[in-house]
Design a protein around this nucleic acid. Structure first.
Lengths: 187, 187
DNA sequence: ATAAAACTAACGAACGTTAGGAAGGTGTTT
DNA sequence: AAACACCTTCCTAACGTTCGTTAGTTTTAT
């Protein structure tokens, strides 16, 4: 299916150069078709972008709900960033949305964050009940987890793998050290 | 001076719409001159952008070196974001640089981060010697501080003041709680 | 008088988009 | 089985607009 090829190319190009910085000519060239052929599959540049957004948010939610470990979820983001153009597209578009979709994207992103804080809260609650996590304030801790996640996403944007891994290591040690159960809470 | 007016308008437009998303027509219109008049002050769109970058990095370093409190430095970022277009321009351009300057910006941004981690390390060292901070690993802690800073910058990008303040509050409590001296380290 | 800073006019290139038609496959009617 | 209409997908050609930029000229200030 050529529509899928268009989506793939568009996702990686939008992710790298942004909405305004990506032309239909670039996309069609990467796919190997002529520029107007895109219109056989998508009504406009905006519609193509919106279709990608739908895919990206849906995919992200699916992955989120399949996760049950806070560390693995973080790790999952790092791993996917290298190969998943749709994921990179989503990060870029959330950080830097085109004008006409700013509000829409923001709302959907906040919805996603809410879903994630809810999910995070559930995992924390499980940990408390299982006795592996101290009796922390769940809302605050979930918020702190989101903070760490965002900082990981930032580092992913800059593209240095080693910096990201280091950041993941440091932030997780701080975070885990703050919530884990144990007689000695700092090393 | 009209060159300054151009810089101001360009900074806020670049910050909001990005390099590719901002046209010289928009800039000149906001300044109140005709489009070609920009060329009396800047050789090209790229040169205008580069001039802004120089200003922004210089300004940021100056502010960084004038700071002596880790919390105040964070707070300073939040406060400036509302009024300082050059600062917003710097964040946007660092997160999402135009292609032809990607490498240059990245290097300068890393230099800035290094300067900040160094400065952070000094402040932490002072705190340890003064007895207000525990005997933590300075490099790790400075890295963690940068993580928190980045997450604040992310939230600033999304523009919700209250979310930013909440994030500042939560992250600082976690951070400070992890490094401050005190018989009881968690509430 | 001289130089800087603004203007009008226009350039070629690139943009997103539309019109109109050719090629190929699918299913229905004779 | 052959002929038909139909729809999808791709094409070429071209549209109007906007882009960054240049040339040449006039205004403004020193």
């Amino acid at each position: 299916m050529s529509a899928e090829k268009i989506k793939n190319s568009a996702a990686s190009l939008f992710a790298e150069h942004g909405y305004a910085g990506t032309s239909l000519a670039q996309i069609s060239e990467q796919v190997g078709i002529k520029k107007p052929s895109i219109y056989a599959h998508f009504k406009s540049k905006e519609h193509l972008f919106s279709a990608l957004l739908d895919d990206a948010f849906a995919s992200e939610l699916r992955i989120l709900y399949g996760q049950s470990s806070l560390f693995e979820l973080l790790n999952n983001y790092v791993k996917r960033h290298a190969n998943d153009a749709l994921f990179r597209f989503l990060i870029t578009s959330s950080f830097f949305p085109p004008d006409h979709l700013k509000e829409d994207i923001l709302n959907r992103y906040y919805d996603y964050l809410d879903a994630m804080e809810k999910k995070t809260g559930e995992i924390l609650q499980d940990g408390i009940e299982a006795g592996t996590i101290r009796n922390i304030d769940i809302a605050d801790t979930a918020a702190m987890y989101t903070i760490i996640l965002d900082s990981i996403l930032v580092e992913l944007c800059y593209g240095s793998r080693e910096r990201t891994e280091k950041r993941l290591d440091v932030s997780w040690r701080f975070f885990w050290n703050s919530i884990r159960k144990g007689e000695k809470e700092h090393d």
